[in-house]
Each structure stands twice: as C-alpha cells, then as structure tokens.
Amino acid sequence: MIDPSLVANNVIDGVLMGLLYSLVALGLALVFGVMDIINFAHGDFVMIAAYLSWLLAMAFWLDPSIIAVITVPVFFLIGVAVYKLVIEPILGAEPLIQIAVTVGLGYVFQNVALGIWKAEPKSFPNPWFNFSIDLGPVTLTVAKLMAAAISLISLYLVHYLLTNTKFGLAIRATSANREVAPLMGINVRKVYAITFGLGIALTALGASLYMSWGQTNPYLGQSFSLLSWVIVAMGGLGGVVGVLYSGLIVGILEALGTTFFTASARLAVVYIAFFLLLWFRPRGLFARR
C-alpha cells in the first residue's frame, strides 16, 4: 500500500511546483493570447535565466531567489530585444514558420548554454531557504513555499495589470481586435513589445525562484516549454485564472505520476493527460468562449 503521508507530501509538492509552472506559463499565455505568436523557445528563456541567476548568485554569494531583482528587469529588456529582432518579422506568419523560427531560437539558446557551461548541471551550493519544516505528517521545503507564494502574488499582479489599468486595457483591446485597436489610438507594436518583454520577464522570475533549490542544465527549457504549452492548452483563453488552475492540475498530475509510477515517468502522465485533453476538450478546461 502507498503511504498516505507520502501521497500528501507529493501532492503538496505538486501544488507548490504547479504555482511556479503557472507563473512561467502565464508569460507564454500572454504572448500567445495577445500576439498570436507561437513561441517554442519559451522554456529556453527559463533555462538562460536560470544560468544568469546561478552566475550572479555565485558572484554575489546571495540566494538565487534574491537575484530575481536583477534577472527580471534584464529579461524584460532581452524580451523586447528578441521581439524586435526575431518576433516582429514573423508576426502574422503561418504557424509552421513561427514554430520553425522559435525552435531555431531555442536551439541557439541551448547550444550557447552548452558551449559556455557544458552539460553538467549547475546549482547554487549555499541556498538560504532550501530547508524543510515538519508539520506533523507532512514536510515542507521553505524555498518551494516561498517560490509558490511569490508566484501566486505575481499572478495576481498580472491579473490586476490586465483588468484594472489603462495599459491592461490596451493589451486586452489589441488581443480582441488588432485591426481596430490602432484606430482607438493604441500603438500596437509598442503593446506587443511590452507584452513580449513581460512574458519573458515572468520566465526570469520563475527561473530565479526555481534556482533557490533546483539545478539547471542546457536542456532545462525543453520540459518547461512543453509543460507551459500543456498549461496554456488546458487554460484555453480563460485568462490568468485559467492558467492558475491549469498549472495546479499539471503540478498535481506530475506528483501523482511520481507517487504511483516512478519519478522518471511523471512527465508521461502529464503528457498523456494532454493528449486526452486535446482530443476531448480542444478548447481547454477553462475556456471563456
């Protein structure tokens, strides 16, 4: 029989990871939902940001989660630059071209990372919050708890930005109709650049938080990319709330896969669920339309 406290522990872990996945996927959902850009390199931004967090953490000997203060603005700028160089030329291109170009971008990131840092994983040797506290039958890792809390706050902030600010209104207007939005005095290119920058900044926040207990390697981005897409598929066009619930579902599925099969089969569980979802609920679980 499987120990119930093990199940509880794994599920709690899944919930915490799920919140982090939601944070990363939210960036992808913004870019896909607002700009109609299919970004297959989304996870590779997480990977590069994880390396940057690790490098700066080593340099300043601070916990990587603190380094988010630097990585988030830097990645916002990187996002805007990548938008100008690579994304703008393929706006409105057919899906295959967008996929091809962003797959190429991901390949460049992965192999630059491989060239510079080689294949062995990197982690910060002196994490501040990577300890556990016992709460009766369950054990919690403080770093993950913190990452989950910050993810939740950030999701709320983005939700607030989209629903309660003038810029959020511009984003939503552009998303709803990109032909009419400019007639209403919205600078669509600027909205796109900032949206892409914001999406990439969220990957950096996720990466810095993740590095306070995790480790990075050049291929870290592949699972983040696929998981983010699974979350976007589940969330449909249900906005921030849809992404939040979908992230939690993915996190919990992964935890159940680890519990009932093995850790190495946990992604299979998530992706099989993804197949079933696409076949039977192609508009996602939380679609508005």
């Binding site: 299919i38 297959f40 899906p95 295959l96 996929i99 699972s223 696929l226 897409w229 699974v230 598929a233 099969f261 093995t262 190495s264 089969a265 946990r266 992604l267 299979a268 992706y271 099989i272 993804f274 197949f275 696409l278 076949w279 039977f280 192609p282």
Partner: peptide, 28 residues
C-alpha cells in the same frame, strides 16, 4: 488527432510530447 481536427501548434506539441511519453514509458 486528425479526427478531432488537431493541427498547427497543437499537432507539433503532441508529436513532441509523444517522444517524451515513449522515453518515460521505456525507462520503466
């Protein structure tokens, strides 16, 4: 997949996920 009209990005993602699923299953 084709019966339910899945194409473009979703087809690409499913096919990418298929490799990971088989990888994980054969790892058992």
């Amino acid at each position: 997949t084709f019966r339910f009209g899945i194409k473009d990005v979703w087809y690409a993602l499913m096919s990418a996920a298929l490799v990971v699923i088989l990888n994980n299953i054969f790892h058992l």
